[in-house]
Write a protein that binds this DNA or RNA. Structure first.
Lengths: 190, 190
DNA sequence: TTGCTCGACCCTAACGATCGTTAGGGTACC
DNA sequence: GGTACCCTAACGATCGTTAGGGTCGAGCAA
């Protein structure tokens, strides 16, 4: 792996652990075993490192959704989306952590760009619920905005508790079951 | 209101907006209309301001649960807990935001203290689900840890989208309905 | 009423440390 | 002879914090 990639990986790790403003160029240099001035052979600013990490996060999350076949029922898509998102968080925990909590320290148009990517991702999720309701798989009075908010909250929070190496598919399915079937169960309908 | 309280309010606001490390003592002084050295008549360090905000957050969230009557059914308690949490977030948005995202910048035993308060809060929520399952209000195969995780994720994420002035009770009830009754609805049981 | 003290509040000026970044030069391998 | 990589040394700026001194009004004693 190139030295530059190694640097971006360390950056993701440290930004996730101590935050963007809590991580100094000196910290990064130390992690690379190098003097801090030397880093500028690979990057042009600290902001660059943040942006690269964010862009990688956006790419990974979108790629997860891209792999979901269009022709599946909406509920199946939702289940796969949950699996995909948790999988990304689990095996790129640093990137996912930075993506979720450090985006506000981006500056300029790069900030706008990442915000737009996030919105687009959320909209793709929302579409699944809209489709599920309109095609009769989900309850007809479902508010797709609230439903998507609930799912996105669950997965966006995952970086705080998910430990890498766990079986994230099983966890995703547990979430799916709770969300779709409810916590009450069918034995005692209202 | 005392000058000291005014300072802690501004601190919560700025920490929420720009992060702890992203906010300088100079920023705080400017917000107070004062030279930065003057702040040290009211506090003994920047860490103090963070801790005070965190402690207020912990207090507010716990106080919300304290107001829930013990004798209610578990599902009613869960609904009230959702309401209470969203209410705290909505009318102390800055404090709640700092409480959720900036706790990791606390140092020393104060950090441990706040982490313990958070754990205790989560355990109180978990107990509601355990009670609801054991007393037959919720499905018998309910995993209380997953259920609590789902609810806590939803409300912990709320600071990112909740706008003050909204009717948070109605929002909380929508969440409650989705979580307990499910998104599929009773018309099409498995 | 006057004079005095006390506490709350703020100032200026500086401290040493650390910040992100740059310049210029060096080594080693293809 | 490039290309990739790293060094030392310094830059101006900003960081959190401290020291020492000043102003003002409230409360109290004479």
């Amino acid at each position: 792996m190139s030295r530059r990639n190694e640097l971006t990986r360390q950056a993701a790790r440290l930004f996730a652990q101590k935050g963007y403003h809590g991580t100094s160029i000196g910290d990064l240099a130390e992690a690379m075993g190098v003097q801090k001035g030397s880093l500028y052979a690979h990057i042009s600013s600290k902001q660059d490192l943040l942006y690269v990490t964010m862009a990688e996060g956006a790419r990974a999350f979108h790629a997860g959704l891209d792999a979901i076949p269009e022709e599946l029922p909406a509920t199946a898509k939702i289940r796969l989306a949950l699996r995909s998102h948790l999988a990304v968080v689990a095996d790129q925990l640093d990137v996912a952590t930075v993506f979720v909590q450090e985006w506000r320290y981006l500056e300029g148009e790069r900030r706008d760009e990442i915000i737009a990517e996030r919105r687009r991702y959320e909209e793709r999720i929302r579409a699944f619920f809209r489709e599920g309701r309109d095609l009769g798989e989900l309850r007809t009075d479902l508010d797709e905005t609230t439903a998507a908010l609930l799912v996105l909250s669950a997965v966006n929070w995952a970086y705080t508790w998910l430990q890498p190496g766990r079986d994230t598919d099983e966890l995703a399915d547990r979430f799916y079951s709770l969300l779709v079937e409810g916590m009450r169960g069918y034995a005692t309908p209202a």
